[in-house]
Nucleic acid binder design. Structure first.
Length: 445
RNA sequence: GGCGACUUGGCCGAGCGGCUAGGCGGCGGUUUGCAAAACCGCUUUACCCCGGUUCGAAUCCGGGAGUCGCCUCCA
């Protein structure tokens, strides 16, 4: 299996460091606000990475954090007069709610920054002792000039960074590109005691602490969306590798953005679609299909039209699976093509085309349809789709039997107006009737 | 300004030097009481532009144009 690695800017063969065990760390949400559709795209990509690695037989340790302390959370707390912990908890729970809806496989652990303050302090103290960090006005800064390979992930040099620096540097820094490991206490802000003064962790350090605590000094895969390459992941590398003297991650995987009209979806610009709005209007399977119809590294534009395309595509899959819902056997030639696509840096658009090819084939060659359907169900489950959509109560089955029986009488007597009205009304509430030669079939959309 | 990614038919989107990608939409037909679902056919020489390499390039090389991202918080 091959994966694109940002660090080497190349597609490389993936091999776990430790036998069959794969350690994956994904940078999760800073719980400062409700999740939006862009977040869901990113985490869908990593959900599929994780599921596919497991399908390949690896034992995956999957950790995705919550950063539950930062400037925006504190500001919001001040603004609303609500304890910052309550705000963080609220958005954390919101994220988990949507993650469940999206059928993201639950991470082995959801660590939180504020539960790792001791580990953070230990790392910072070590960096100070090693001479890579310095205390200034109660802040602790990482001295970037000391870390030789700074910029190697984002392909930047310190010189370039200086020339491009666009904001007023903090006066307590030696160099404008030094970043905060620890922020000095300010009035009315949360703080913890540390040997170098009370304050709170800067952004970046919490991830290093959580990775090292839960997965170890070197992980197989570290990921996030592409906006994390710089400075977040660059800084994680600098502080972690200085602390451990070991390579921090074997692979760096970054996902493309979800855009709206070509512009990056982002809370700060106001251009975004909330997870709530998205999932109220489209079922999770459709959303998932929409996301993975594009490769995870390419930018993807959001629009109603494209969501509807995905919805119609999904209906084709669903219709096929509902028509052939019996147990069958796995067709290995389809499975092989699917694996070939997925092994190639998770080429989900190609993998989906394998599924549609198989459906087309089955419709033209119905004796294999049951096995094709069975195979597709298997493939969809690897991709994280929830295919148990036939859940209907016995009560509903009985009611539908009665309705269909009555409609049958009506149609026999050519009372089409009435029978059509029943069909239309049911369709409005999401129950579709199909009058076929073999009788009337129904399904819940 | 620096660095990076991208540019494929009406729309989305694979493609990694020769072999129909796939989906959605549209049109016509088969089927149906009408629908739905499905099937068949069509949607005519798709690959940003200009050079080059090659028997052969959407695919490789050079140049140009454009879009987006990162360089500040961001999935």
């Amino acid at each position: 299996m091959k994966l694109y690695d940002t660090y080497t800017s190349s597609i490389r063969e993936f091999k776990p460091i430790d036998g069959n065990n794969v350690k994956v760390y994904v940078c999760g949400m800073t719980v400062q606000d409700s999740p939006h559709a862009g977040h869901l795209r990113t985490f869908t990509s990593f959900d599929i990475l994780r599921r596919y690695l497991e399908y390949k037989g690896y034992k995956v340790s999957f950790v995705q954090n919550f950063t539950d302390i930062d400037d925006k959370i504190i500001n919001k707390s001040k603004e609303l007069g609500i304890d910052w912990r309550k705000i963080a908890y609220k958005y954390e729970q919101e994220y988990i709610q949507y993650a469940k809806l999206m059928n993201f496989k639950e991470p082995d652990f959801y660590p939180k920054a504020t539960l790792h303050i001791q580990e953070i302090i230990e790392i910072i103290q070590s960096l100070i002792n090693k001479g890579f960090a310095y205390v200034s006005n109660g802040n602790v800064w990482f001295d970037v000039s000391k870390f030789e390979s700074y910029g190697k992930l984002s392909k930047k040099t310190i010189e370039e960074l200086i020339s491009g620096y666009r904001i007023e540097p903090d006066s307590s820094k030696k160099n404008p590109y030094d970043f905060a490991l620890w922020k000095a206490y300010k009035e009315n802000e949360p703080y913890w005691y540390a040997p170098f003064g009370r304050g709170r962790p800067g952004w970046h350090i919490e991830c290093s602490a959580m990775v090292i605590t839960h997965l170890g000094e070197t992980v197989d895969i570290h990921g996030g969306a592409e906006d994390l390459i710089f400075p977040h992941h660059e800084n994680e590398i600098a502080q972690s590798e200085t602390y451990t003297n070991k390579k921090f991650s074997n692979f760096w995987i970054h996902t493309g953005f979800l855009n709206i009209k070509g512009e990056k979806m982002s809370k700060s610009t106001g251009i975004f679609l909330s997870a709530k709005d998205l999932l109220e209007n489209y079922e999770p399977n459709v959303v998932r299909l929409f996301y993975i119809k594009a490769h995870y590294r390419t930018p993807l534009d959001f629009s109603e039209e494209l969501l509807n395309d995905a919805k119609n595509s999904w209906n084709r899959v669903k219709n096929f699976l509902l028509e052939y819902s019996q147990d069958g056997k796995i067709l290995t030639d389809i499975l092989y093509k699917f694996e070939e696509a997925m092994d190639d840096n998770l080429n989900t658009p190609k993998a989906i085309s394998v599924i549609f090819d198989a459906i087309n084939l089955a419709y033209k060659n119905r004796e294999i349809a049951i096995d094709v359907s069975w195979t597709i169900r298997f493939l969809l489950s690897i991709l994280g789709f929830d295919i148990n959509f036939q859940r209907t109560s016995n009560r509903l089955n009985e009611i539908m039997d009665i309705i269909i029986e009555i409609r049958h009488e009506l149609r026999k007597n050519a009372q089409f107006e009435l029978s059509d009205r029943i069909r239309t009304r049911l369709k409005d509430m999401g129950i579709v009737l199909e009058d076929t030669k073999e009788g009337t079939k129904w399904k819940v959309l």
